[in-house]
């Protein structure tokens, strides 16, 4: 592809704020504290294997829940008349205008002992700790990232030509066949970008587990946050391993769709 002059500022931006930082992380990851080549940092990074596994697992479950919740909603919205669609997508976006941390604080208040949800549940005789466990972390993630799943799904589905649905019906397809053979295949690009937009940030996020989780729910983002201050090299190595595993995930995801999630 030929580069055009208008793209130069973007390229400069990418080089300064994306490429150089990544190279720096790579440099730190492969050196020791004296700047000499060393794989020690990776050795230490793999000491956090269980945290990696935890984070990817939490991200996977959150993404799956988001997909299950968002898919029907995206479909329903895309079948409304235009003005209703606008209102509904607006409603989905409004919570995102609020600061991310504030929304997490709100969940802490909602879920705490004698908080609103606990009080309601105790009326029907249920009383447990709602906060401080993995379920709460996943809830927080789903809440945080659900809009990022709904919006791409809705966008792709609203572009599906209604005549294709009518044609399928004319040819005798029932509702589930229309869904399975027309809508679903055409919505795969939306699924892929939705999954990418939810999985990637939720695997690398931090603070959510610190606020909603217990003593065992630390995520890899928190580990990087803590380790980086005292040991740049190990912090960078962990970040690099995380980047590579997310990249691998995106490549695998790409096999499922025609449109590319990474390009």
């Amino acid at each position: 592809m030929k580069l055009r002059r208008p793209s130069l500022p973007y390229i400069a931006w990418m080089v300064v704020f994306t490429l150089i930082p990544i190279l720096l992380i790579g440099f730190y990851a492969f050196t020791d504290s004296n700047g000499a080549f060393s794989l020690e940092a990776f050795g230490k990074a793999f000491g956090y294997m269980n945290v990696f596994a935890n984070s990817l697992w939490i991200a996977f479950i959150s993404t799956l829940i988001c997909l299950v919740l968002a898919y029907p909603l995206g479909y329903i919205i895309s079948r409304q008349k235009q003005s209703t669609q606008n209102i509904l997508t607006m409603l989905i976006m409004i919570p995102m205008w609020m600061n991310f941390l504030l929304r997490i604080y709100a969940w802490v208040t909602l879920l705490q002992n004698n908080g609103p949800i606990d009080t309601m549940l105790s009326f029907i005789g249920i009383h447990t700790n709602l906060l401080g466990n993995r379920g709460a972390v996943i809830l927080g993630m789903v809440y945080e990232y659900l809009p990022f799943m709904i919006l791409p799904l809705y966008t792709v589905m609203s572009k599906i030509d209604n005549r294709l649905v009518e044609a399928a019906q004319d040819l005798g397809a029932n509702k589930s066949e229309v869904m399975g053979k027309v809508i679903f295949p055409l919505s795969v690009p939306g699924i892929i970008s939705g999954v990418t937009m939810v999985f990637v940030p939720s695997a690398s996020t931090f603070l959510v587990s610190q606020y909603l989780g217990g003593t065992n729910d630390i995520m890899i983002g928190d580990v990087i946050d803590k380790i980086f201050w005292s040991d740049h090299n190990t912090g960078s190595a962990i970040a690099l391993v995380l980047m590579v595993s997310i990249f691998a995930f995106l490549i695998i995801l790409n096999f499922f769709g025609d449109e590319e999630a990474i390009s």
Partner: peptide, 17 residues
């Protein structure tokens, strides 16, 4: 000492994971 501090930080994070 930097080394000792990094070790303490590492052990602390391991404790939490």
């Amino acid at each position: 000492d930097k080394d000792i501090y990094a070790y303490m930080q590492e052990q602390f994070v391991k404790l939490m994971s």
